[in-house]
């Protein structure tokens, strides 16, 4: 019984992935999403849907940036059929920072370093099986205090 159910689900996911594929297989850089000044607009422009919060999307990023110009971030997921991973810095002038298109051979984990002008929420978005999942974290950019 369980096996059957899993197979059916997997089949449905594959179908929906195929249905969604044309939109996700970006043939060119999504310039309008990159120039959007609002995070939600950039995400809507890029994916045409709003993300669901998911614990299966994992983001490693410092709580406090050592240097706002170089903030290391790693996004990974245990979701299957991952098509893309994107990073959005909500308070940046143009929030969309990066889009990574993966392939069926990809391990769904990418690392990159981003600029943050000020304290901001950072969102990681994973497009998998035609659905959009996300996680977010606030990252503080500070002038620094004094050591103990």
């Amino acid at each position: 019984m369980k096996v059957h159910r899993r197979l059916v689900l997997k089949g449905m996911l594959a179908l929906s992935a195929i249905a969604a594929w044309p939109r996700l297989l970006l043939a060119a850089r999504p310039d309008s999403a990159f120039s959007a000044s609002d995070a939600d607009k950039a995400i809507a422009d890029l994916f045409g849907q709003t993300p669901l919060d998911s614990e299966q999307v994992k983001m490693k990023i410092p709580d406090i940036a050592e240097n706002g110009a170089v903030v290391p971030v790693t996004v990974s997921t245990d979701l299957e059929n991952v098509e893309s991973i994107s990073i959005v810095v909500v308070n940046n002038p143009t929030p969309l920072a990066a889009v990574f298109l993966l392939t069926p051979r990809s391990i769904p984990s990418v690392s990159v370093r981003i600029k943050m002008g000020q304290t901001s929420q950072v969102r990681a978005l994973v497009n998998a099986g035609g659905n959009l999942y996300s996680t977010s974290k606030d990252v503080k950019v500070t002038i620094g205090g004094c050591g103990g």
């Binding site: 205090g145 004094c146 103990g148």
Partner: peptide, 10 residues
């Protein structure tokens, strides 16, 4: 606390 640095006020 993860956003504190453990020093005192300037």
């Amino acid at each position: 606390p993860y956003l504190q640095q453990g020093g005192d006020m300037v």
